[in-house]
Amino acid sequence: MKKLSILFVLFSLTLLSCQDSNLPDKLPFIGQHQYIDGDTILYKIPSFDLINQDEESINNNSFKDHIYISDFFFTSCPSICPKVKKQMLRVYDKYENEDIIKMVSHTLDPKRDNAEILKLYSSNLGVDTKKWMFLTGDKDELRELALKYFVAVVEDEEAPGGLDHSGKIVVVDKNGHVRAFAEGTDPDDVTELMKEIDILINEYSSED
């Protein structure tokens, strides 16, 4: 009987250790920071100049009052994009009425995905483009920018759709710092990401 109770205690302990009880109250700053003369310069999304589905010009300043959640895709992508979009849609549904949150999807195939195509895509996805915008622009700029959001892109004729790329969903704060990311094809990872987004929202609301 004694052995049984020891087992029981051990079992309860393993259960406890599975629980995610140590979520931080502040998110880390992610990326390659620079250290110059003893100062830390935090990694930041570099400046960009793109256009959205309504052909309006969009740059870093467009998000200065918002946390934004970003991904990269292309509308004709037959591989991971739809799965990532399904997860982005979960995030959208959760934060639809949370004004501080914006969402941004960048195309990696601007030749095909012009503003008009992106507008049609957003309407088929059933989302409000005031909340979730779709960006296109110069192909090289978009490829470069993808890397800055930790999205790897490789042109590959063998790959479905001619492009191999990863499906990271990245959370950027009001100052352009990356604060969290998730693998957009993994629903559990995105569930965790949403907990992190809550923490970031909380960081700003406690500032007021």
């Binding site: 037959p78 591989s79 991971i80 994009c81 739809p82 799965k83 979009k85 399904k86 849609l89 895509y121 309407s123 088929n124 996805l125 059933g126």
Partner: peptide, 16 residues
């Protein structure tokens, strides 16, 4: 098939 039609077969909005 699951890339577009999803593992649970629910598709995606009015896209798939």
């Amino acid at each position: 098939c699951a890339s577009c039609h999803m593992e649970d077969g629910t598709g995606l909005a009015e896209l798939y």
